[in-house]
Computed example of a mutant assay.
Amino acid sequence: MNPLFDFTFPHKWQAEILPARPAILPARHLVYPRQAEEIERGALEVLARTDEPNASPFLATCALGFRDPVVPTGIWSTPNPHEMCAVAGGYAYIIDTVTPEHFTMLPYRPVLQVRSAPAQELLLFVGHRAILAWGANGRAWETAKLSDEGVTINGLEGGLLRGMGWNMMTDKETPFTLDMRSGSLVA
């Protein structure tokens, strides 16, 4: 597992991926999701510190989705400077670093790619069939189905996202273009 790091967006926290859970846990230890059977398969252990005064560090134990190298694992900054995105084997968690009890586990299992779109202030999550965009205030939009199995982003430019999706009926890769403000298909 080679973790990825993307700190494109300004953030008010620091984080490091630990090679294993520490023998002595910090006072604040949170498991994501709260009651995770997946923890038995493994976890991403992230030691995080917020820049808030007098805040103590916390250990985020993020349940691992898959051990396949095709799915991402790592840490991303988000458009909200207090939120951290941790991805563990394709399971994506948005964690509020000021109150880490507050988190969102994204519905894609797995997330196949995470992509920063700084011009639009979005963090993009690519699944098998659609794309979900996360903004400073949370979920910004989610596309309709773009593919029967496999979405590829080819480029982000001028407020447009260009990509490809496989169409089962034609057995062909089909291009698509999205408006990055809404996630809608552009005709």
Rank of each mutant, 00 (worst) to 15 (best):
P57N: 02
N80H: 08
R34V: 05
W134S: 06
A27G: 00
P107H: 13
K172V: 13
G163E: 03
G150F: 06
E37A: 11
R115F: 11
P10A: 05
W166E: 08
T99Q: 14
A140Y: 02
L146S: 08
S77R: 10
I75S: 02
Q113I: 04
V31H: 01
G90A: 06
A119S: 11
L44I: 06
R181T: 11
V98W: 01
K172D: 13
T152K: 15
N167L: 04
L132D: 10
A15F: 05
E142K: 03
A27I: 03
A136V: 05
P107S: 15
P22R: 01
E101H: 06
E101P: 00
D148V: 08
L161Q: 00
P107K: 12
L156Y: 07
G127P: 00
P81G: 10
M169S: 15
R21T: 13
P118Y: 08
R109L: 14
N167Q: 13
I95N: 08
T99F: 07
H128S: 12
E40R: 14
A48D: 00
A20F: 09
E37S: 09
F5V: 15
A43P: 06
R139G: 00
A144G: 14
D68A: 09
P53N: 03
W141Y: 15
Q14P: 00
A133F: 11
Q113Y: 06
Y32T: 06
Q14W: 01
P118Q: 02
L161T: 04
V111D: 08
N167G: 01
E173P: 04
F176Y: 09
D148L: 02
T61P: 00
S182V: 03
I75N: 07
G158S: 07
L25H: 01
E173H: 12
P69E: 08
R139Q: 14
L156W: 08
P100Y: 14
V186S: 12
R21L: 11
D6A: 15
M169W: 12
A86I: 12
D6P: 02
N80F: 03
A144H: 13
T143E: 12
G135C: 10
E173T: 08
M168H: 14
E149H: 15
M105Y: 00
H11N: 15
L112D: 00
L132G: 07
A140M: 01
I24H: 05
T177C: 14
G135T: 06
Y32C: 07
T78C: 09
D96H: 08
S56T: 14
D179R: 06
P69K: 04
